[in-house]
């Protein structure tokens, strides 16, 4: 029922001890084969800053966002902020193949697509930016702040967690992947956890809220914590994802990029990221 995926710790002694081993691994991973597809289009950040101000503000979105607006050239997760919301950023192979693949942190469908596309691209979404700014603003000498990510199935809880892991990796945190946080009273770190309705059990649960899924004991164990809800895509994010799939030649049906096709995909997926990905799989 509960998936606690990582603790980000910043204890200085530990950092010194683990850094050399990371460097060694980095050297090893440079030998990994290069992607087969042509390199992604990089866009000048000045070009889409105007798009962001015009597009993200309004609630109603046009179904034809400008070309190349779906990708950002910024690859450092520490430098991503609100201006990058709703765009795809590229995760470097070093982190993906070296750190995340051995423990299979990314969802299986996503990993399958990554190997086909020849790149790892993740959308920057609000929960990630929110938690990141919270981590940056928090005092590491105080007891750890606990974040619990929740939301409907397939909405991107695990992807948010993976983005945070990438942020932690770049910032030279120690990434700890544990099934359950036993002691939450330590200091010098961050605890990020997800609660998932479908985790580990094959029965249908009524609610995806933390109070229901953690039950009373789990709630008291974690309390106090910051709940972060991951919503389904907005209309603009759905269109951005469709643009990305068209760019990767993944959407092959001639109608998929048309106005009616886009509306249909958005409606059928109910803007749920996982369902949208599955619908795009065979079109």
């Amino acid at each position: 029922m509960l998936q606690t995926r990582l603790i980000l710790s910043t204890t200085s002694a530990l950092r010194l001890r683990t850094l050399p081993c990371l460097r060694e691994e980095r050297r090893f991973r440079k030998r990994v084969a290069q992607p087969l597809l042509p390199p992604p289009i990089t866009v000048n950040p000045d070009q889409y800053s105007a798009v962001t101000e015009g597009g993200a503000g309004g609630s109603t979105s046009s179904y034809f966002p400008p070309l190349s607006a779906f990708r950002t050239s910024q690859t450092d997760p520490a430098k991503l902020d609100k201006s990058h919301l709703g765009r795809f950023y590229t995760v470097d192979n070093e982190f993906y193949k070296g750190v995340m693949n051995p423990i299979q942190c990314y969802p299986p469908e996503f990993r399958q697509n990554c190997s086909t596309f020849g790149e790892v691209c993740v959308m920057i979404r609000k929960p990630f930016v929110d938690i990141k700014s919270c981590i940056e603003a928090s005092d590491m000498k105080k007891p750890v702040i606990r974040y619990i990510i929740y939301g409907p199935p397939g909405s991107g809880k695990t992807m948010t967690m993976c983005c945070l892991a990438h942020y932690g990796f770049v910032q030279e945190y120690i990434l700890v992947n544990v099934p359950w946080v036993k002691n939450t009273k330590e200091s010098g770190g961050v605890v990020v956890s997800t609660v998932d309705k479908l985790a580990g059990q094959n029965e249908i649960r009524e609610s995806d809220l933390p109070r229901y899924l953690l039950t009373k004991d789990g709630w008291e164990h974690f309390d106090p914590f910051i709940p972060v809800r991951v919503e389904n895509y907005t209309s603009q994010e759905v269109q951005t994802t469709i643009d990305y799939f068209l760019d990767r030649k993944w959407l092959q049906h001639p109608q998929a990029g048309s106005e009616f096709g886009r509306i249909e995909l958005e409606y059928l997926s109910t803007r749920n990221p996982l369902t949208l990905m599955k619908l795009c799989n065979f079109r």
Binding site: T116, K249, N281, R283
Partner: peptide, 14 residues
């Protein structure tokens, strides 16, 4: 099936 077709053909596309 359709997804598999796309994966196979995209690998050839390179």
């Amino acid at each position: 099936t359709f997804m598999e077709i796309k994966r196979v053909q995209l690998a050839k596309y390179a």
